[in-house]
Computed example of a mutant assay.
Amino acid sequence: MRLSARTHYALRAAAELAAAPPGPVPAERISTAQRIPRRFLDNILLQLRRAGLIHSQRGPDGGYWLARPADQITLAEVIVVIEGVPQDNEAFFGASEPLEKVWAALRENETRVLTGVTLAHLAGGSLPTL
């Protein structure tokens, strides 16, 4: 699975929010902590907010926070918001037909791992058995 830099940044920003104490986290703090270019981060946070994964508040005490508990947001959810749902349009013919089963097994395992890991796992520093 290839993920864009945008998706990597979104996962890092979401992990930062999960690890933060309760309350709004300023975008500048996320940007600095995760070394994400601020303008890029602002667009990512907007996308996550529109998808309902985070909330925001403007003003001097403003910032961002998770819309649900970190143990209820999976890596798969963040990835789908940024990357969209993958489309399987590739057809296999002749000797390559068995590849269809190989790719299906890979996708199934990717999905299992990404839906089994939550932001709470990242924030806590301990991943489930993969």
Rank of each mutant, 00 (worst) to 15 (best):
A19H: 01
V81G: 06
I36G: 03
E77L: 07
A19C: 01
G63R: 10
Q47D: 12
Q57S: 15
N43K: 14
L46D: 09
T32N: 08
L53M: 08
D71A: 11
I30V: 15
R50K: 04
R12A: 15
G52Y: 07
P22F: 07
G62V: 13
A10S: 12
L66Y: 02
L11E: 02
E16Y: 08
G52L: 10
A13V: 01
L66P: 00
R58C: 01
D61M: 12
A33T: 08
Q34A: 15
H55T: 12
T32Y: 06
L46M: 04
S56W: 10
H55G: 06
E77S: 13
L11G: 05
Q34H: 02
A18Q: 02
P69K: 10
Q72Y: 00
N43G: 15
R38A: 14
D61G: 14
Q72R: 15
H55L: 14
I44H: 04
R50V: 00
T32P: 00
Q47A: 14
R50E: 14
G52D: 10
V81C: 07
V25L: 13
A70G: 13
P60S: 13
A76D: 12
R49P: 00
R39A: 12
I73Q: 02
S31W: 03
R12E: 13
I79T: 14
A76F: 04
S31M: 04
V81M: 09
V78T: 10
A51P: 08
A51I: 09
N43A: 11
E16H: 14
R38Q: 14
R29Q: 14
L48D: 11
S56N: 13
W65Y: 08
Q47W: 00
T32K: 14
A10G: 12
E16W: 03
Q72T: 03
H55I: 00
L17G: 08
P69M: 04
Q57V: 14
A13Q: 05
I54S: 12
I73K: 05
Q72W: 00
F40C: 10
L17D: 06
A67I: 03
I30S: 07
P37A: 11
G63T: 09
R68P: 00
I73L: 13
A14H: 01
S31R: 05
A20V: 01
V80Q: 11
R68Q: 15
S31Q: 06
I36H: 02
I79G: 05
G63D: 08
L17H: 09
L66D: 03
G23I: 07
G52Q: 09
E28C: 01
L45K: 04
A15N: 06
A15Q: 10
S56Q: 15
R68C: 00
A33N: 13
T74H: 03
I82E: 05
V81R: 05
A10C: 12
L46V: 03
L11C: 11
P60W: 05
L11F: 06
V78N: 07
L48K: 10
G59F: 08
P24I: 00
E28M: 10
T32Q: 15
